[in-house]
């Protein structure tokens, strides 16, 4: 899925800095080195509201390796590790 209006390149949310805001383009559980099977990871992310089109913003980072991150997804805040956030492709 490409968004014509947005010229920003797509990146995994797991690489974004604090303060980053964007829109979820798609989920790609294969790209995350999570301990969970791909389908399970994708299901969990969707159940927490990480679906295509949702607005996300990185509000906070932890101290060790800037991990985990606190992400605003629409109007709730979810803490995830960067490892799992690699599955969320944003732009």
């Amino acid at each position: 899925m490409t968004d014509d209006n947005d010229t920003r390149s797509q990146i995994p949310l797991g690489l974004a800095q604090r303060g980053y805001t964007g829109v979820i383009q798609h989920l790609s559980a294969r790209d995350a080195a999570s301990a969970l099977p791909d389908i399970e990871l994708e299901s969990r992310l969707i159940e927490l509201g990480f679906v295509e089109g949702a607005r996300v913003e990185i509000l906070h980072e932890g101290i060790v390796g800037r991990d985990p991150i606190a992400v605003r997804v629409d109007n709730i805040t979810i803490a995830v590790r960067r490892r799992e956030a690699m599955a969320i492709i944003v732009a």
Binding site: S34, L36, T77, I78
Partner: peptide
């Protein structure tokens, strides 16, 4: 041990 994901609503 592979670290299980941490996902938590704040």
């Amino acid at each position: 041990y592979a670290p299980a994901p941490f996902m938590l609503e704040l």
